[in-house]
Design a protein around this nucleic acid. Sequence first.
RNA 1: GGGUGAUUAGCUCAGUGGUAGAGCGCUUCGUUCACAUCGAAGAUGUCAGAGGUUCAAAUCCUCUAUCACCCA
Length: 1040
Amino acid sequence: MPMEKTFDAASAEPRIYAEWEQAGAFTAGANAKPGASPFSIMLPPPNVTGFLHAGHAFNHTLMDILVRWHRMRGRDVLWQPGLDHAGIATQLVVERELARTNQPSRRELGREKFLEKVMEWKARSGGTIIEQDKRLGASMDWSREAFTMDPAFHEAVIRVFVDMYEKGLIYRGKRLVNWDPHFETAISDLEVENKEVDGHMWHFKYRLADGETYEYVETDEDGTEIMRETRDYISIATTRPETMLGDGAVAVHPSDSRYAPIVGKMVHLPLCDRVIPIVTDQYPDPDFGSGAVKITGAHDFNDYQVAARNKLPMYRLMDMSATMRDDGAPYAEAVERAREIAAGAEADAAEIDSLNLVPEKYRGLDRFEARKLVVEDITNAGLAVEVPSSDPRLGQPAQRKVEPEEGADVAPDDRLVPLVEPKKIMQPFGDRSKVVIEPMLTDQWFVDAEKVVGPALDAVRSGETKIIPESGEKVYFHWLENIEPWCISRQLWWGHRIPVWYGFDLGTPMSGGTGDLDEVDLLKLLLDGGMVHSGDVQKVGAELPEVTGGFQDEIADLPSPLSHARIVEVEDRNAALHALAESLAHYATDQDPSKLVYPVWRDPDVLDTWFSSGLWPIGTLGWPGPEWEEMRRYHPTSVLVTGQDILFFWVARMMMMQYAVVGEKPFDTVYLHGLVRDEKGVKMSKVLGNVIDPLELIDEYGADSLRFANAAMAALGGTLKLSRDTIKGYRNFGTKLWNAFRFAEMNGTFEGRSPQAAPPAATATVNRWIIGETAKVREEVDAALDGYRFNEAASALYGFVWGRVCDWYLELSKPLFGADDAAVIEETRATLAWVLDQCLILLHPIMPFVTEELWGTTAKRAKMLIHADWPTYTAADLVDPQADSEMGWVIELIESVRSVRGETNVPAGADVPLLLVELDAPGRAALGQNDALIRRLARIDTITEVAEAPKGSATIPVRGGSFALPLADLIDVGAERTRLQKSVQKLEKELGGLRGRLSNPNFAQSAPEEVVAETRANLERREADAAKLRAALARLDEIG
RNA sequence: GGGUGAUUAGCUCAGUGGUAGAGCGCUUCGUUCACAUCGAAGAUGUCAGAGGUUCAAAUCCUCUAUCACCCA
C-alpha cells in the first residue's frame, strides 16, 4: 500500500508512545551497552496540581533530546520523573476549590480533614501533567515516578532535618520574616515580589520631652548657614505611619550636626503615652528626608537591624492576618509595663511579644484603615509638618490654579498644609497571594546557610560542577557569597511537618531540684501563671519515641514524683496547659503519682517546599534506605536542565543540601534557560491572555513540530520566543522528510531490503558524496549536543535533510534511477535507504514520533528506533574528497545556470543549449561524469564546446573555466547587462578588501600562513571571475 | 542604587577575531514524473552610537544610548 501524503501525527503518536511503553523502552538502563557509563537526569518536579505549560514543554523537550540521544548511544540512562507537593500553591488551589464549592473552610475543617481534601484533590488532578508529558513524547522512567510526599521521601526529608539540627545547621529563633497575611505564613524572600507602587511620604513632628528646645541649623554644601530656628520637635518621615505606634526610638546619623544637640534626649511618641530616645546609627541617610528615621523594629527590615544594634524593644503591632492587634491586656496596662521595660525592667522576648501597645482606638483595624486614622489623628494634634501649599514636594494638586480676579487679595499659595509627598515606593507582594507582605516578628526555623554554602561555592569555582551559560555562574556566586539565613518553616498544613516537640520549661518556675513536689510548688505552677509564662524546651527527632528520652532527662531534676511524670503528646500549647493543670490538680487531691503527666506538643508548622525538593536528587534514588547503594550509580546526576529563575530557589539549595547530607555534588552540569515567551517576547500570563497551550499546539501540528521548534530556539542564553509560524515551519519539515520516504518507496528503495548500519560501498559520485555529507552532519550533531547547543543540532539536521538530501541528493538520484544500469540503480537504492535511515536516527531525539513511524514502516528492524544504535562514523572515514569536490562543482554550475536563466527571463520550461568556452581537466571530468544530471537539473538540451563565446551570450564562470548560454533569441539583454554589472560591482567591493589586506605588509607578517594563502587564492579566483564578467559585458555591448 | 544580559535583513533570531547567515515574510516565475505543508530565482544590512586594541572587529576592551530581567 503506498504511503499517505503526510504523516498523521494525531493518530500515530499515541500508538507509538504506547509501543515504547510496552517495550519498556524508557526503563533505567534500557539499551545500555555492557559496562556503559551512567547518564542521569532528574526531572525538576512540577507541582502536583500543575498542568503542562509552554515552559515545561520546552524544558522537558531538551531533557528528552539528551536522554534519547544518550540512550541510543548505549549509555546507562535514567530519567527520573516525579511531582512536587508544592505546599503553598496546592493549599491555595484546594482552599479556593473549597470556597468555590461552598464547602467548609480550611479552619472549619481542621488539619486532618483538610489534608484529606488535599489528598483527594491530588488523586484527582495529580496525574494530569504526566499524561500531558506523554503527549509530548517524554521518555521518562515512569516506573520510578516519585512524589515529594511519598513515605520514603518524607523519611528522607525528616531525617535530613534531624541530622542538620544535630550538626547545628538548623536553629529556631524569633526573627523578622516576610509574612504573608493571606496565607498567614512566613515566606522566603525569594517568594516576595517587590513592585513599585504609588505611595506617600508623611512628615511628623515628635516633640521633645519636658518641653526642651534646641537650635535647628541647616547649612548648604559650603557650610554656609541657610536656615536656623528654635525647635521643640524632631521631624521624621515615613511611608508607613501606622507603624509609629510601635516605635522604639528615633535614629539619626552620628555625623548629622543638625541633631547633635538632642542625641540621647527623649521624645513623645504621638498618640501614645510613651517617650522614646533619639539614638545614633549608621542607617539613617542625612540627605534623605529630614535625616531622622523612626525605628519600628518589629515591622521593618532595616529598622530591625537598627533596633537589634541599639537594643531597642521591638513591639509587634499586628496579628497574623495583619490587622492591628486586639489581644492581651488593655492599652493602659501594656503601656505601663512598656515604660517599666524602657526604664530597665527585665523582660524576655516572649513577654515583649505579648505586650499589645496598640491604643484601644486602633485595635482590630485593618492596617490600611489604621494608617488613615493615624494620619488624621496626628494632623489633628498639630503634629504634622506643614508647608506652604506652593511647596513643589506636594506634587501638583488641581486646586492650585487660582483665577486672578478672585484671588487677587488672598495669598492662597502661602496657606499651610500638611506635607504629604506623593512618592513611588517599593512594596513587597506575596508571589502567590498577591497581598502586601508584612514584615513580622515570629518564631521560625532557619537553615544557617552560611555554614553550608562553602562546598557549593567551591564546586562551581573549581569546575567540579559547571553552570551553562557561564553568566549563570556569576549570578550564582553573587547570591551565595551574600547568603542570608534560610527560613524553612511555613505556617501551612500541607507539607512535611517539622519533627520537633515542645514541653514546658518547669525548671524555671520551680526553685528546687531535689525535694518532693509540695504545695508551694503546685501553687506556683497553677496559680501564679507559672506554666503560662514559663519558657518552652524543644526536642528534635523523627518520631515521638525518639524525643521522649530527651524530655525525661529534662524533667528529671523536678521535684518527685513530677520528675517521673508520663510523657504524653497533646495537640498544642493550650492543650498542654490544660493537661498539666488537670493532672496536677488531681495529684493535689488524690496524691496518685501514676496519673501525673508531662504533656508535649508537636510544632504545627511544615517545612518550606524547597527544603524537601532540595533533596530531590538523593531522595528519589533511595537515600537513606538500602537501595541507595544500588541506585547511587546515578548520583551525582549528569545534568540538571532548568529555568534560570529557580537558580536560587532550587539549584543552589540542592548544591548546598546534597553536600551537607551526603557530601557529594548533585550534578556535573547545570543547564539554565530562560522563560518561554510569546512571539513578541512578552511573558505569558493568563491576565494578558497570551498563554500558548502546548497541548493545543500538539493537537494542531504534532508533538514533533513543537519539539523541533523548542530545540531550534534553545540557543545558549537566548530569549525563548515561541510562535505558531515557527512550529508550522517545522511541521512542514516533517512533511518534507515524510515525502522523501515516499519518493524512496516509489523507487523501490525498501523492497526486500535488510537494513544495514554500515554505509554501502558506492561507486557513483553522487552516492559517495551524500554518504560523506551524512558523516559530516553526524559529527556536527554530536558536537552540538555535546555542548548543549540544541539549536545548532536542530539547524544542522534541518539544513542536511532539506538542503542536502531533499534539494540535491533526491534530485541528483533521479537520473540514476532512470538509467538502465541495474547495478547503479541497486547501489542508489542501497545508498538512499542508508542515508534515510541515518536521517531517522539522527533526527529521532528531536522528532521521535515521525521517525519511529518511518523506521517501523520501511523495513523489518531488530529494534525500535528509540533503541537503534547511534552511529560513530566520521567525516574522515566517509568523506571522499574527490566526490566532494566534483559535486561541489556540479551544484555550483547548476545554480549558476539557473540563476542566469531566472535573471534574464528565460522561460522556465525551455530547454536551452550550453556552450563550453574553456575548462580544465578536473572540470571536464566532472562535466563528463554528470552530463545527464546537469542537463536535467539545469534544463539544458545540449552541451557543445566552442572556441569563443558568441556575441550576446550570457557568461557563466565556474571553477576552472567558463560556460556560456547563447541566448540571443531568448535573452533579455538589458537584464543580463544589469545582472553582470551588479555582479562586477559586488566583486569589486570584495576585491578591494582583499587587495587592501594583501598589500598591507603587516598582514603577511602577522597573520597565520594559511589565512594569507587563502586570501591570496581567493583574490586570484575573484579576479579571474571579474575578468570573465567584464569580457562578457564587453561582448554584450557589441550587440547592444 | 547594585548585578546580569540584549541591541545584526521587514519580523523572529543564529553567528567567540579572517568573504555578514537562517527561518518566516516579501517580489517574480513554475502544477505529469516524492512533497503547493512544494520547487526555482531575487531583493533587503551604518551588525545601536563613539572611541580603543589588532595585520584584521558584528566578535575583544572603554564609554554612551535604549531595552529586558534579577536583587535591594
